[in-house]
Amino acid sequence: MTQVLIDGLFLGCVYALIALGYSMVYGIIKLLNFAHGDIFMFGAMIAFTMLTAVPGLQSAGIVAVFGVLILSMFLTGGTGVLIEAVAYKPLRSAPRLSLLITAVGMSFVLEYGVKQFWGSKSITWPQWAQMGAGSIPIFDGTITISRLVLMAVSIALMVGLGFYINGTRQGRAMRAIALDQRASTLMGVDVNRTISLVFFIGSALAGAAGVMFGMYYGAIGFMMGFLLGLKAFTAAVIGGIGNMYGAMLGGLTLGLIERTTVYFCNGDDSWKDVVSFGLLILFLTLRPTGILGDRVVERM
């Protein structure tokens, strides 16, 4: 059972990191950015290209991987800003549904655009840039060091984001726009710039998750963002979409629920997605504000 907890929490961390970006964007402009899962995939792809294309990187070892992680975050962040400017900004005053459809279109553009350049084959992450396999026993389960590192990095990123949103001027601007966009404009908040910033941060986090995903699982492909994106969306809804802490809580909850379902089915995951997405429907109908929805008055 300890193993179930460990596995579930780890999976939950991956979901949470992607759910954050979903939730931030929804919180601020009420857009379900379905391209978010594909930004995650794009981050893994460009990191892979940097790792393999730059000669001599291997000798720098962990420093190189860390550098590539940071650089990928900037690049995916930039991509997020670009997508917002090209596909979402012109539609900001259009009906919500148009935005949603554009987002789905953007998702396909990214998926099949990446397929054109990187191919449809699953790509193996360079062996040297993958994480080692050492593990530590905890009660009757074990946790690999690579998982510990990734969970620590995810938590650090989430805590950092929490400080940023609650403790800085830009963070306050984001929260203000989430509450009332027009009033924020009247109060002198640069709305366009702040929205771009939200896309930058959300996409950079997704990029980071993509790179870490490659480092841990060792296999990436152009469709990897699709299901994971849907799961992250589910996590965001369960936790309370638009709410940052809700995204984290939702991610962990979903990870644990999925892993527990598989545990009770003796390793068979046929029921897992039924339970996850059934839960999504249940929350949308019975408690659309999610677990944290009511307790937190302020979104973001």
Partner: peptide
């Protein structure tokens, strides 16, 4: 003999691994 299934769109198979 036991038999289980997995969803090939997933990347995390920790549930199946426990059974393996």
């Amino acid at each position: 003999i036991d038999s289980i299934s997995l969803n090939p769109k997933e990347k995390d198979f920790s549930g199946q691994v426990a059974e393996i």
